[in-house]
């Protein structure tokens, strides 16, 4: 009896010691770590990539490419931007970047006065190099160091040719651009028009619309009313393609129309997969990102001065809806 009691007591003692030990270990041992102390070298370059459309497949790829390249060349890069082409927010980000005295800014070009003023005056004042990516703004207006991205004029020509090969050399084509008249759209248009000029049987109708969805829909409706015989559509601003197709679809079949756009819209690839778009011009966003960082680093390290003001073109390809299947 006494022995049993003793064993019981020892058992309880061991049990309690074990529990105490376990909890003590948990209480005194912290497995969470504070963030590591600053590892960045003082002289590593800080680069900001600013876009107007965060979280779209196209710009995500640009960001990814840029980050890869930045890591490779030992620069620290952050992707800033606005959502859904919020210009005020975008410009504010740009200004903050300039005022934060980053070492270089890679920015999606925006063809507005405020943008030009910021790049021309502010950035130049602080001596911050600016590279446009994806969309260009002419050097004279923005004092950008260079442009990295597709040759938009060539892209316009390609899309026109693509349409011609599908539609034939006769028909009515509606070119829908947005009212911003951004530089890259102008260039695409000029490319399209250059091709279409040599085909007198093609009648091209040029239309402009503000970028909001409702307005695009309204404009499309107007256009369909005005030109019921239209055979093809080209959404020069890829972001308008979705709303445009939606309206056309409401009217009737989407199939008979030849609809083309570019891949830098948030819905472009989805629409292509649904065969609602007959073809897109695919650019190389990842390459753009990589190249832009690479070029900027070259400039920052004084390896290539000055940079090619005409820009560095990235690849463009045509994709037809059939190819995708």
């Amino acid at each position: 009896m006494r022995k049993a009691g003793l064993i019981f007591l020892i058992f309880i003692c061991i049990f309690l010691s074990y529990l105490t030990f376990i909890t003590a270990q948990k209480a005194f041992q912290s497995d969470w770590k504070l963030p590591a102390a600053s590892t960045q070298k003082e002289d590593s370059f800080r680069i900001v990539l600013i876009t107007q459309e965060l979280d779209t497949p196209f710009w995500d790829k640009v960001g990814k490419g840029a980050e890869q390249q930045a890591q490779k060349s030992g620069a620290s890069l952050e992707v800033w931007g606005s959502y859904g082409k919020n210009q005020d927010d975008f410009l504010k980000k740009l200004e903050v970047a300039i005022q934060s005295k980053v070492d270089g800014i890679i920015v999606q070009g925006l063809d507005t006065d405020r943008f030009k003023e910021l790049t021309k005056v502010k950035a130049a004042f602080y001596g911050i190099p600016i590279i446009t990516v994806g969309n260009d703004v002419p050097k004279a207006e923005s004092l950008r160091k260079t442009y990295v991205g597709s040759n938009q004029h060539l892209a316009g020509m390609m899309i026109a040719k693509l349409m011609l090969s599908d539609m034939g050399q006769e028909g009515q084509v509606i070119l829908l651009s947005d009212s911003q008249k951004e530089h890259y759209q102008e260039q695409r248009l000029s490319g399209i028009k250059e091709v279409l000029q040599s085909f007198p049987n093609i009648k091209s109708i040029y239309a402009e619309t503000p970028e909001t969805r409702e307005q695009v829909i309204a404009k499309t409706r107007d256009l369909l009313n005005q030109y019921p015989d239209a055979d093809g559509f080209i959404a020069v601003n890829a972001n308008t393609a979705g709303a445009m197709i939606q309206e056309i679809g409401r009217r009737g079949q989407v199939e008979p129309y030849f609809i083309y756009s570019f891949d830098d819209g948030s819905e472009s690839m989805t629409l292509l997969n649904q065969k609602k778009l007959d073809g897109v011009i695919e650019q190389s966003p990842e390459m753009m990102g990589r190249k832009s960082v690479d070029v900027l680093m070259q400039w920052l390290k004084n390896e290539t001065v000055p940079l090619d003001a005409d820009g560095y073109s990235s690849e463009i390809r045509m994709i037809k809806a059939m190819d995708e299947r």
């Binding site: 963030p35 590591a36 102390a37 600053s38 960045q40 800080r46 620290s76 952050e78």
Partner: peptide, 8 residues
């Protein structure tokens, strides 16, 4: 400064 907020 730490590695997380260095840039910012």
């Amino acid at each position: 400064r730490n590695s997380e907020n260095e840039f910012a």
